[in-house]
């Protein structure tokens, strides 16, 4: 199938999930953010805006691209590192 949903896309990617998060988001700091650029740009769709104005983030299917880090306008809202060696995304064909 050529046309695919985002879920179908993500199912083709291999991740070795670490038990600790390499990126953490301070949802409180997101409450004063009107842009929510992370929600738009994340190619894995890992940022979910919540009703209370904060943003929920799940590190498990992260491509480690850094887009969220560069677009974030809230000082200190995203703490960003690479996952532990050998963990995280493992591309096979790209």
């Amino acid at each position: 199938m050529v046309m695919t949903t985002h879920d179908e896309k993500m199912r083709t990617v291999r991740f070795r999930v670490d038990d600790t998060a390499h990126i953490s988001v301070d949802g409180e700091k997101c409450k004063s953010c009107a842009v929510r650029a992370c929600v738009t740009v994340c190619p894995a769709g890992l940022f979910v805006p919540l009703d209370d104005g904060s943003v929920l983030f799940n590190y498990e299917q992260c491509f480690e691209c850094g887009a969220c880090y560069f677009v974030c306008t809230q000082e200190g809202a995203i703490r960003w590192t690479y996952p532990r060696g050998g963990f995280g995304v493992t591309f096979r064909e790209s």
Binding site: M1, T12, V13, F63, G66
Partner: peptide, 23 residues
């Protein structure tokens, strides 16, 4: 992009193997 009339005939019948992203 895949649905554009100039592109759709080129990808028709294919199967997604891997999705990826990078800066």
């Amino acid at each position: 992009f895949k649905a554009h009339p100039a592109v759709a005939p080129l990808v028709r019948g294919g199967t997604l193997r891997e999705y990826s992203a990078h800066l």
